[in-house]
Amino acid sequence: MPSTPSAPHVGARRRAACLAELAHGTERFHGPRREDCPWCGSRDLRTRFTASDPLQGRPGTFTVDRCETCAHVFQNPRLTPEGMAFHFRYAQPGPARVRRTRRRLRATARVMLPYGEPEGWLDVGTGNADFPAAARAFFPYTAFDGLDPSPRVLKAAEAERLDEAYVGRLTTPAVTGRLRARYDVVSLLHQLHRSPDPRADLHAALGLLRPGGRILIELPDPTSLFAPFLGRWWLPHTQPRHLHLIPPANLRAELERHGCRILRTDRLHAPYDLSVATTLLLAHLLPCPDAPWRPLPPTEAQRALRAALSAATAPLTVAAAAADHALAPLLRHTGFSNTYRVIAQAPYRPRT
C-alpha cells in the first residue's frame, strides 16, 4: 500500500557528486521542444501540465503534451540520454511504484493459455523475473528468457527463475541480433511508455518472434478519465520517467501496419489511482529533506517533524487505497479503466 516515504540517509560522497553535476546546469538534460507529435506527426498539440517531479522533487520541470489528432501523450521536451542517466543515477526509492502482485501476474499469464504452450518466451524488462516465475505455473515446459538493462536479470537466472538472461535493451544490436526470430512469445509488460522510442522498441520486439509468434503487451491507458481528472498526480503521468503514453487504438494500428493480427484486447484496471495520487500530493507537500540534490542534510529535528506529519497523514492514503480496491471491479468496465492489454500474432510470412 502506498505511503509517504521515510527520509533515506544520503552519503556525503553521493551528495557531492550530484551537486557537482548540477553545477553545470540542467539545460543539457532536455532536448529541443517538439512542435509535432512523435507518433502521427500532427502539429495540433496541447499541454496537459508542466510540473516538477512530484515525488522526490528532483531538479527541473517537465512538460507533458497530448496530440489532439491521435491522443498520444508524451514528455515534451524529452530528456536527453544524459538527462535520463542523471535522473536514474540519483533516483531515490519511493512509494509510488505499484508492484504487480503474484495474483495479477498469474492472471496476465493465464490469458495466453488458449494459444498453447510456447517453446520459447522472452520477457522484456523482466527485472527480477517475477512474471516468468508466475507464468511457469501455467507453462511448465516453456523456456523463459529475460531481457533487462540492469544486472538484476543475471541474478534472476542464477536463482533459476530464467533459463537465459540478457543485459541490454530491445534496441541494443549486440543483444537482440542474437535473438532474432527465436521466440514463440515476447512479452512487454508496462515497458513501452518508458522507452525514448516506443515504435522502435515495438519493431525490435516483433523481430524476435518466430513466424506466427505472439506478442503480449500491457500499458497504462492515456484515454482513461483519471488522466485529466488527476492530472500531474496520476501515476502514469509521473515525471520524469514516463516518456510516452500510447492509446490502445494507436498500438493496434501500429501492430497491424507490421502485418500482425490482433487476437485480443482487454481493458484492465489496477487499483492505484486515488492512493498514488494521494501519496504524490503528500510527498509534494512534505518533501523528503535528504536527497542528493539538496545542499545540506536534514537536522534530526527536521527528520522527526516529517516523520510525525507522515504518520498523521497516513490515514488519508489508507482511505484512498480502500476506495481504489472497492471501486476497481466497477471501474474496469468504464472509461476510468487505467490499463489495457493487447495480444497480437506476427505474420507467418514477411510482408513484401
Score class of each variant (00 low, 15 high):
86 F>S: 00
303 R>H: 04
87 H>R: 01
201 D>T: 04
244 H>M: 04
14 R>T: 13
159 A>H: 13
114 P>N: 11
165 A>V: 05
338 N>E: 06
125 G>A: 09
38 P>Y: 01
197 D>Q: 10
321 A>Q: 15
248 P>D: 05
130 D>M: 04
170 L>P: 00
155 K>T: 15
268 L>H: 07
172 T>Y: 05
159 A>M: 15
38 P>I: 04
134 A>V: 07
298 P>W: 05
54 P>V: 12
43 R>C: 10
86 F>Q: 00
302 Q>Y: 04
224 S>W: 01
329 P>A: 13
172 T>H: 12
336 F>S: 10
24 H>V: 06
269 H>M: 11
167 V>C: 11
246 I>R: 01
94 G>W: 09
64 V>K: 10
175 V>H: 05
247 P>E: 01
135 A>R: 11
269 H>R: 11
348 Y>R: 08
92 Q>L: 15
38 P>K: 00
291 A>W: 08
93 P>M: 12
35 E>C: 13
341 R>T: 09
327 L>M: 14
78 R>L: 09
292 P>Y: 13
295 P>G: 10
152 R>N: 11
60 G>I: 06
86 F>A: 02
229 F>G: 05
308 A>C: 08
341 R>K: 11
319 A>S: 11
297 P>L: 06
257 R>L: 11
289 P>C: 02
192 L>T: 02
312 A>C: 12
274 L>T: 04
195 S>N: 14
271 P>Q: 09
347 P>S: 11
210 R>G: 09
160 E>V: 10
151 P>S: 14
239 Q>G: 11
156 A>Q: 09
307 A>N: 07
324 D>M: 10
322 A>Y: 08
53 D>R: 06
292 P>K: 13
249 A>P: 01
89 R>Y: 05
25 G>C: 09
100 R>N: 12
261 R>W: 05
296 L>A: 15
203 H>C: 12
283 A>G: 07
231 G>Y: 06
227 A>L: 13
18 C>N: 03
225 L>I: 13
309 L>H: 02
126 T>W: 04
13 R>L: 15
3 S>T: 14
130 D>L: 10
296 L>Q: 15
170 L>F: 01
286 L>A: 09
48 R>E: 13
219 L>A: 15
300 E>V: 15
120 G>M: 12
344 A>Q: 00
71 A>R: 09
108 T>E: 10
16 A>N: 10
93 P>Y: 10
352 T>C: 07
111 V>A: 12
28 R>E: 12
